[in-house]
Amino acid sequence: MTAGPPPQAPYTAPTTHPPAPAPTSPPRKTVEDNPLYAAPRTKGSCRLPGVGSGGWKSYKKYMDGVSTCLDRIWLREFAKADMSFWPSRRVFPRHRVRDRRCGLMPSKEADGTYCQRTFTYYVILKYTTGYPQATAYAAELVAHEYAHHVQAQSGISDYEYQATEQARTRKAKDLISRRLELQAECLAGVALHAIRNDLPPWQAFRDQYIGTIPRQWALDHGKLATQLRWLEKGYHSGKPGACDTWSPPPRDVT
């Protein structure tokens, strides 16, 4: 595959859709000492379909392949942590579609959104060239949205929802959101570690974090440099335990 320039379009950060309110607030240890953090380094043996010269159909097949691989990877990780798990549903539409519980998906101005109320993530892929950067973007986006499902299955999302509801300032809410989103970046890296031999060169992933994003995206998702740092932390470790974004001080989740 011939290398080329990164996809030329405004960066749109993935988002998650809040879960239904939990009857009681999960304890802080749900996010700081989650059993999933004890799971071993991820392993995977997945032969992903090629994308050739690109095109929506080939990328849809590729994203389905990545998702199926993530099903196996995370099922194993949860089993090793003695936790129950069931795979996420996924939809790869060409245009926004309506989820029966979360409304139009992905959320407005987002390429990907996870709806915890139906355990489904939605991804609209804008880049369908044959360049490695486009393939890397597709793989990372799917892995990020799947990571929100991992957070939901482990109870982390329930804690985040309750903490956000109790936060009194916009600044406090943004900090909580960054912890969730940066953890999803890290968990995406953990999953990508398992299938690294079937992925584009890592530089193609790094290229996604060059440039600027809207101020509010940075406030509630983290700066691009911070997103990349947590993605690489998960990727190089390969272990969910590297992804505790809830214990570090705010300066580490900017």
Rank of each mutant, 00 (worst) to 15 (best):
K60R: 14
K57L: 10
Y37H: 10
C69N: 02
R100H: 12
L70W: 02
Y37R: 04
G103M: 08
P106C: 04
W56S: 13
R41K: 13
G55V: 00
C102A: 12
L70T: 00
P87H: 13
D82R: 11
R100A: 12
Y62D: 08
K60V: 15
P87F: 02
K43V: 11
Y62W: 07
R98D: 08
G44M: 04
D99Y: 08
G103K: 01
A81T: 04
S107K: 03
Y59T: 08
P40A: 09
R89Q: 05
D111A: 09
K57S: 13
P106Y: 03
K80H: 13
R41N: 00
Y62F: 15
K57N: 14
P35M: 10
F92R: 02
L70M: 14
T68E: 14
H95P: 01
E109T: 07
E109G: 01
K60C: 06
M105H: 02
L75K: 15
C102Q: 12
P49F: 05
R96T: 02
S67D: 11
C46K: 12
Y62L: 06
Y37T: 01
N34H: 04
D99W: 02
R101V: 09
S67E: 05
A110Y: 01
W74E: 04
M63P: 00
Y59N: 06
K61F: 05
C69M: 01
C102H: 07
C46W: 09
W74F: 09
R76M: 10
P35R: 07
D71P: 03
E77L: 14
S88M: 00
S58Q: 14
P35H: 11
G44Q: 13
S107A: 12
S84E: 07
A39H: 01
S107Q: 13
V97A: 11
P93V: 00
R47Y: 08
F78S: 01
R94N: 14
K57Q: 14
G52S: 15
F78R: 01
F92G: 00
F78Y: 08
P35N: 07
R96E: 09
A110C: 12
E109W: 00
M63F: 05
E109Y: 10
S58F: 00
M105V: 06
F85C: 08
H95N: 15
V66I: 11
T113S: 15
V51E: 05
P87W: 06
G112N: 06
D64L: 11
M105K: 05
G44K: 03
K61E: 14
G54L: 06
K108F: 03
G50E: 13
S107I: 08
F78A: 03
D111R: 12
L75G: 11
R72N: 05
S67K: 07
D99E: 11
R76P: 03
